[in-house]
Amino acid sequence: MTKKQTCIFLIVIAVVVAALLAGIVLTDGLYESETTIQETMQDAVLHEGDKISLFGLPVNPGLISAFSVTAILLVFAAIVRIFVIPRFRFVPGKFQLLLEQAVGMFDGLAKGNSPHRNGFLGAYVFAAGAYIFVGTLFELVGAPVMTMAGASVILPAPLADINGAIALGCLSYLVILSGGIVSNKLRGVGRTLKEFSLPISMSFRLFGALLSGALVTELVYYYLALSFVLPVIVGVLFTLLHALIQTYVLTMLTTLFYGEVSEPYVKRPKAKKDKRQNKTSHSEATV
């Protein structure tokens, strides 16, 4: 780096720092919240004060997010089905490659973890993966909605709502159970019920992971001094990483347990005990 370049670099850094400091000083007191951080975080978990009316039914913002995510995904899928898939080529372009990679990844995950039965599982984990990934990234959009109390709230990730997490966790468990029943009848039911804690662990893992992300973001956004530069890392990078990790975790767990319960039962021959050997060893032991 030449002297001139070093000078330019230092000047740019100084200007950026000065602009940030000016922003911090000038915006101080502009965004004073009416609620305390405790109340904000309590709302983020319990959604007591931010109910939204869905045709007269009070629901959590997470449900509206879930419907929005579903709508977005279905519209996207319909557009792709109508305009893109008929133009697929044997040598794929970039977008076709992306779609094929997504489908192939979940299909491969299902085949790899559940080799005996995976047709339905692949489609399920594809849908669940797309839902979790897009749903988690949806909070970055920051779409505002009006609550029943007249306040404005930003739509969170659908799975940051405990009801959404329980729905997906229990549904995944039911899918695993169905795989066990179809493959091994009663034995499959037994194998699935053996993992009775699975729906709770799956639900609360999703909820806890996404809620912790939401809480950290809330904390960062609550304090004005932290609302420069840092939200880019916390809001975008953490959410992106979060989306990938949660998608991978739930789909991987579902396919693994599905593969375990749908594995065909193999009767193992019982090892016959050699009476003579037993007698000898017994006598040796006695001696």
Binding site: T70, A77, A78, A128, D161, A167, L168
Partner: peptide, 20 residues
């Protein structure tokens, strides 16, 4: 709301399965 989430996901699953 849990059931509404389930219904939402079932619709999403069916749509994604058929369309994509």
């Amino acid at each position: 709301q849990v059931l509404l989430h389930v219904l939402n996901f079932v619709i999403l699953f069916a749509g994604l399965w058929l369309l994509l």
